[in-house]
Amino acid sequence: MSKCKSLIWPKVILFGDSITQGSFQANGWGSAIADKLARKCDVLNRGLSGYNSRWGRIVLPRMVNEEEAGNIAAVTVFFGANDCALQDKNSQQHVPLDEYSENLKAISKYLTAAGVPAGKVIFITPPPIHEAAWEKECKLKGCPLNRLNSVAGQYAQACVQAASHCGADVLDLWTLMQKDGQQRTAGQHGRSTGGMMPGGAPTEQNNREDAWEARRWTTEQNEWDPQCRADPAGTQK
């Protein structure tokens, strides 16, 4: 009896923080991508709640190696929402702007060296922050407001510039979600980006639906605390 050759689907790797980790929840953007790519690609969730670009850069070699790089169709790199935490309010997760940019470039450089061309890498900027709603969440945890939308915008711009430097694609969520002058902030785990199609652009319909609720991150599941625990992986030097 002849042996059938196994089918191996190309992989799409979603790499990032809690917005990525929770993206496979109901109506999540990760689950939407997996649905769109059914029978075409295996979509792998490699989101790490609480992580910033510094820790992501450290663990990336344990997630992507040369042996599997040839079968990777795309990698999304979605950090910045924790990096942009205010240093004096959340020093554990805060990453200086210049270091954030260099971390993204290093992540892209590693992927290229491993065999994933820059054209298969998609940077995603941090989304905007609804400060009033986020401040309420912080107060519930007994800490002051530790993120500002204007600062998130600086990190978003740095992400766009890093993508241009590396030759990677970029999805500027911070700008897209505010493009009509009405701030729409990502819901818990970024469910609001359920309209983000694999091509890299959120659909206008979903941009305008109630999915753009105040970002709640992962506090409801107690996966992440605005007070911020130290390096979840114990990787910080």
Rank of each mutant, 00 (worst) to 15 (best):
G153F: 01
V151G: 02
P128K: 00
L104K: 04
K179D: 14
H94E: 13
V95P: 08
A113V: 08
R147D: 04
V151W: 05
S164Y: 02
A152L: 10
K109P: 00
V95R: 09
A163K: 04
L145R: 03
L176D: 09
D98P: 01
T125V: 09
Q161N: 15
N149C: 12
I124S: 02
Y110P: 06
N146G: 04
Y155S: 05
D172V: 04
H94A: 08
Y100K: 06
E131F: 00
L140W: 00
A156R: 06
G142Y: 09
Y100V: 02
F123L: 01
K105M: 11
Q92Y: 13
C166I: 01
L148T: 13
W174F: 13
K120G: 01
V116C: 10
C143V: 15
M177C: 15
A118H: 11
K109F: 08
D172M: 06
G115I: 05
K120W: 12
C159I: 08
V160A: 14
F123H: 05
L148S: 11
W134E: 05
L148C: 11
L145H: 10
A152G: 08
G142K: 03
L148R: 15
Q154E: 15
I107Q: 04
E135Y: 05
I107D: 00
V170L: 07
A132F: 02
G142W: 10
H94L: 12
R147I: 03
W174T: 05
H165C: 15
S150G: 01
V160H: 10
H94P: 01
K105Y: 05
A163C: 12
V160R: 12
E102G: 05
V151D: 00
C138F: 00
V170E: 05
P117R: 08
L173M: 14
Q157Y: 09
N149P: 10
N103A: 10
R147V: 02
W134L: 05
N146C: 13
I122P: 06
S101N: 05
K109I: 04
E131T: 07
I122Y: 06
C159L: 09
A156F: 08
L111Q: 03
H130D: 15
D169I: 01
E99S: 12
Q92T: 12
A132L: 12
W134V: 06
Q93L: 14
I122D: 03
P128W: 00
T112Q: 11
L145W: 08
K105P: 00
Q157M: 10
G167Y: 10
G115Y: 03
D169A: 14
L104V: 06
A152K: 03
K179N: 13
S101D: 05
C138G: 01
A106F: 01
M177G: 01
T175W: 07
V95A: 08
L173V: 13
K141G: 08
N146Q: 09
C159V: 08
Q157V: 11
L97F: 06
Q92K: 15
T125C: 10
G167T: 07
T175G: 02
Q92A: 15
R147N: 07
L176T: 11
M177E: 10
A133F: 12
R147T: 04
N103L: 09
T175H: 10
C143H: 03
E135S: 09
V116I: 14
T112Y: 04
W134G: 04
A132D: 15
Y155D: 07
Q178V: 02
C159A: 15
A133Y: 11
A152D: 02
T175Y: 08
Q161T: 14
A158Y: 03
S164P: 00
P128H: 07
I122N: 01
G167V: 05
